[in-house]
Amino acid sequence: MARIPYADPAQPDLREAAETIRASRRKIGHLHRMLLHAPPVAQGWITMFDAVRWNSTLSGKIRELMMCRVAAINDAPYEWEAHAPIALKEGATQAQLDALRDWHGSDAFDATERAALAYCDAMTRHVHVPDDVAAAVRALFPPRELVELTVTIAGYNCVSRVLEALEINGADPLPEA
């Protein structure tokens, strides 16, 4: 169970934020129910992550592989379970998902994916990105995509940290919204 109860989106003071979430996600899941405890944060979260997910020029496959890699590094099963199916829809293979936890030893990834994964690892594990890793992604991604790649990795590190700190679990029961 989560560390605190999930918010009730029917509460009058949460309705506006709940509608923002519904308009974007169609339903209010566990993470968003938790975020509703802070309505301005919930609304800002939706705005930012809608930009990352739906208004980015970064390929969906790279985007979702990065989200899954962050989930794997941070041991965030909710994040993995949410994004692995999307990664498959965006063109990742099951072999890539299976190899993602130890991608260095796999031939399932092309040079662009490997550079992005190295960048993701550096950002997630060490924060500071070594010059050679940064040069590799800079050579492969135009500036806008490099910023989008960076924000995707940073953003989903934020997601996993919220999920894990508050012990948000997709199996937790939620009352009807």
Rank of each mutant, 00 (worst) to 15 (best):
R144N: 14
M1P: 15
F109P: 03
H104K: 14
R33M: 06
R101T: 14
T124M: 00
S160A: 14
E167C: 05
I168A: 10
A82S: 06
Q11R: 14
V147K: 11
S59G: 10
M1W: 14
Q96H: 02
N74S: 09
E19I: 01
A116S: 03
A95Y: 04
R22M: 04
I62W: 06
L149P: 12
D8V: 01
R25L: 11
D110Y: 13
A71E: 06
L31D: 01
C68P: 07
E16H: 12
K89D: 07
A38R: 13
P173W: 00
A154T: 15
M1D: 15
L163D: 08
R69T: 04
L163A: 11
N55K: 13
P142G: 10
E16R: 03
T93G: 04
E64G: 05
I86P: 04
V137R: 05
P173D: 06
V41W: 10
D107R: 15
A72H: 08
A23G: 15
D8S: 08
Y6R: 10
P175E: 13
I4A: 05
Y78F: 08
W54V: 04
A87K: 02
A87P: 07
I86A: 06
A111W: 10
N55Q: 11
A72R: 14
V159L: 13
M66T: 05
G105L: 09
A154H: 02
L174M: 09
A76S: 15
H83Y: 02
T152Y: 06
P9M: 03
L58H: 03
A18K: 04
W103V: 10
V151Y: 12
N74A: 09
A99M: 01
C68A: 09
L35M: 13
R114I: 01
Y78A: 02
L146R: 15
I168L: 14
M67D: 00
A92Y: 03
G105W: 10
L166R: 05
N74Y: 03
E79W: 04
P173K: 00
Y6F: 14
E64N: 08
S24M: 11
R125C: 15
G29A: 04
P143C: 11
R3F: 14
L117H: 03
C120L: 07
L100C: 07
T124G: 02
D107C: 06
M34C: 10
L58K: 01
D50E: 09
A87L: 03
E19C: 02
M67P: 00
D102Q: 15
A139W: 12
I28E: 15
C158V: 14
P5H: 13
A2Y: 12
V133P: 08
P143W: 15
L140A: 15
R22D: 02
E81R: 14
H128L: 14
T57E: 09
P173I: 00
